[in-house]
Nucleic acid binder design. Structure first.
Length: 333
DNA sequence: AACCCTTTGAAGGCG
DNA sequence: CGCCTTCAAAGGGTT
């Protein structure tokens, strides 16, 4: 745990109320004078050695790297894939959280200069007003109406073969650059794009609009089997899912994972995350601060992109398998 | 196929 | 306010 100032508040957090170094991260603070790497091997709760510990070849390689530098200690903690006790200047695998700037490269330039693309991995190019139904003004971050998504049916009672040939109402957006685009949330256009209009527009080349106009949307939906609707709805929910912004540690993990994987020849994320967790605690305040700052910007950008979004929206989306608690096992976090 | 594991941090709910 | 829970990423492992 980072040092607290005399007031008990973290000085780094003083001007960032959302940044917290508290929260009982005792492992990181209990012995700051000892590099976490030095105690990694001893107590990894999740056994690395059982599964995919640093393999023989990579161990030799790591040892060579370590010995190759005059300042590097030859004490190598292989079981945790760490390089402890590295003096200043040693270019070993110990963290050098250099430039974090771009975590994920957006494929089109967004005014908000995204670091991470939420949902569908992409960001929108600006929408021209003429392309919006009703000539609506384009906005950065179309207001979401996630809870409306399921309330208005948008599907047609026709076979997949038939519907697959129907152009998507906003297909022009998707076809741009042959990439997915701004995470258009189902319902984001609901106020402009009522279901009946959608159906009429989409099927105008297939069936008579005259006929459709006479058919109530609910009646149309009777043609769709419940299962089919359920599948489509689930698919739709996945597409419209807005993910939480990444926190500082997640940003750090995202950047450093590949490095750890290559160093330790590990692929199992649980083991890698344990290593990353320890390295995180080994970071200096300044180094961690950079990630906290990055995470803060991420949250701000997320708020701009998805005003009104709440973390609560994603609750219950992942079904948890009930795991039997072992005797004496408490919730440890 | 869906969830578990494992990490830290943010955020929401509840008493 | 403090505690608990969920979910962000990742990919091999498990059910």
């Amino acid at each position: 745990m980072p040092q607290l100032d005399s007031t008990g508040r973290d000085p780094l957090a003083a001007d960032q109320e959302t940044i917290s170094f508290t929260g009982g991260r005792e492992r990181g603070g209990e012995n700051r004078d000892i590099l976490p790497a030095e105690r990694d091997a001893a107590d990894l709760p999740y056994s690395l050695t059982n599964q995919s510990d640093c393999k023989e070849a990579s161990l030799k390689e790591l040892e060579q790297v370590s010995r190759g530098h005059p300042h590097c200690s030859t004490h190598v903690d292989y079981s945790g894939c760490f390089f402890p006790s590295q003096p200043e200047g040693c270019p070993g695998p110990t963290l050098q959280p250099s430039d974090v700037a771009v975590v994920q490269q957006p494929h089109c330039i967004h005014p908000l200069t995204p670091l991470i693309a939420y949902s569908r991995d992409q960001f929108p190019c600006l929408i021209h007003p003429s392309h919006l139904p009703g000539g609506a003004e384009p906005e950065i971050g179309i207001p979401r109406q996630p809870h409306m998504a399921h309330t208005i049916p948008t599907y047609c009672p026709f076979s997949p073969e038939a519907t697959s040939q129907i152009p998507h109402p906003v297909g022009w957006l998707i076809s741009q650059q042959n990439q997915s685009v701004y995470p258009i949330v189902q319902g984001g256009f609901n106020h402009l794009y009522p279901a009946a209009v959608t159906i009429r527009t989409s099927l105008s080349n297939v069936i008579s609009c005259k006929w459709l106009r006479k058919v109530d949307t609910d009646t149309v939906l009777l043609f769709i089997s419940r299962r089919k609707r359920s599948d489509l709805k689930n698919e739709d929910e996945k597409k419209n899912h807005i993910k939480k912004p990444l926190n500082a540690f997640m940003l750090y993990m995202k950047e450093m994972r590949a490095k750890v994987v290559s160093e330790c020849m590990l692929k199992e994320s649980a083991a890698i995350n344990q290593i990353l967790g320890r390295r995180w605690h080994a970071l200096s305040r300044e180094e961690q601060g950079r990630y906290y700052e990055l995470a803060k910007k991420e949250r701000q950008r997320h708020m701009q992109l998805y005003p009104g979004w709440s973390a609560r929206d994603n609750y219950g989306k992942k079904k948890k398998r009930k795991r039997e608690k072992l005797p004496g096992e408490d919730h440890v976090k």
